[in-house]
Amino acid sequence: MTAVFRPAPIGKPRRTRANSSRQERTLPLRQQLILQVACLFIALTVLFPIIWVVSMSIDPRNISRPDALTLIPPGASLQAYEKVVTRPTSNDISFLGLLANSLKIAVGSSVVSVGLGVLAAYAFSRLRFRGREAMMIGILGVLMLPSVATIIPLFIFLNQFRVDFAGLSFNLRASLLGVTMTIVASQLPFAIWNLKGYLDTVPRDLEEAAAVDGASQFQIFRKVVLPLSIPAIAVTAFLGFLGGWSEYLTTYMFIGQNIPDWTLSIALNSLVGQYARTTSWSEFAAFAILFALPVSAVFFVFQRYLVGGLAVGGVKG
């Protein structure tokens, strides 16, 4: 499969000598202006939905639907934010409750898949053993499958188990734990593949030196390889976090009936569409911004390191 590669990070041009000598030449003014107009137009199309949502979210008129395009509505306020933080949906769950559930799924699935993934990635990248190729193809095959393809059998499989633990008794399928396991199933192959790709680019000199000094293989892994792969672990963990944070289809299928377990993405979808005739769009907009802002801000700041991972399949639909 040739579809796995890393694009050059944005905003950090790889400059050749010849390129930089051309850099000094300037664009004729007329051409410069034409290109500026084109670039501004593109920027406008990119920003348009974002500006629209932001301006709706601060609309104070408490109208259920906007009736015109306004950049800053008269008397802008943060009322809608207040409303969605206290009672985001018509159901009895607060924003903090939704946030906590989303965080549990996101952190849980990301930690488990990176933890298991880094061990497997090390073996695939550094060790030679029988069946290596076949196992890697197996993982790649699973990586290509959409998560819908495993969700139905997992639903039935997990539905068979009742968990009785520390006084709690619940059906594994209808729980955040079951959802987290299902998300791990779709994230683990990506974690293995992404971490292996990174380890392949790390030179082996340090490991060889450690081996000469008499370190055991596991010591080399723990004291040399693991510290070296911290950047890749961070990137993979964040992409996994992002996947869990905005996961919808498994979560809704498994725990949609169970309102105390609702996550941010289920609540967001309950604010749009035919069942949300009474929800004002200001609230929808405010909720969408509160939902997106934390992850988008992190993503934006570290995009140089993250877009490469995205190109390998970080976010699976």
Binding site: Q23, Q36, C39, I50, S246, L268, F291, F300, Q303
Partner: peptide, 23 residues
């Protein structure tokens, strides 16, 4: 070569990618 505000445009244009798809 020599296009003004290149860095700003590049930063703006990446915005759709950083927003969760469900949103």
């Amino acid at each position: 070569k020599g296009l003004w505000f290149k860095g700003i445009y590049r930063a703006l244009y990446i915005l759709p990618v950083v927003i969760p798809q469900i949103i």
